[in-house]
């Protein structure tokens, strides 16, 4: 008899469609359950905010940006570990996002190993909480 272990929920917020399509499949392969959102506003409006164990968040988005969402979550007292992803290979973006207590910042395109390590780091943070 197989015991169903509930997989931890990872939410992906990115305005780019190819990321929203490809990343969830890979995350499922890595053993997570996944929800994808095309904007920060959609994510905030969903019922996933409280359940999300790790947020994979794009930095530059029209409307509310990644850092805007992080600030909003802090205001709401939602302490979700965040892994930033960005298509802008800019070191200042990375260091400033890490200063904002993000777990990791990945430059697109990133490898599955880099993603796996970032998620592990995020869940270590989860355990610490």
């Amino acid at each position: 008899m197989t015991v169903m272990i509930k997989c931890p929920l990872v939410s992906v917020v990115d305005d780019d469609e190819s990321v929203r399509e490809s990343l969830p499949d890979l995350l499922r392969e890595l053993g997570y359950s996944v929800r994808a959102f095309s904007s920060a506003e959609d994510f905030l409006a969903s019922d996933c905010v409280g359940k999300t164990r790790c947020l994979i968040l794009d930095i530059a988005m029209p409307g509310m940006t990644g850092p805007d969402l992080q600030q909003e979550l802090t205001v709401r007292g939602q302490d979700i570990p965040i892994v930033y992803i960005t298509a802008q290979a800019d070191e200042t973006v990375r260091s400033s996002s890490l200063e904002q207590s993000a777990v990791a910042c990945l430059f697109k395109p990133f490898s599955d190993t880099a993603l796996f390590e970032a998620l592990n780091a995020a869940f270590r943070v989860n355990r610490a909480i």
């Binding site: 190819s18 990321v19 298509a87 802008q88 697109k108 395109p109 599955d112």
Partner: peptide, 18 residues
């Protein structure tokens, strides 16, 4: 430009890994 090119590249790498 970097943004425009890196977006599909991210999709490619992720899809190939999956």
């Amino acid at each position: 430009i970097a943004h425009e090119v890196n977006q599909p590249l991210a999709g490619i790498v992720t899809n190939a890994n999956t």
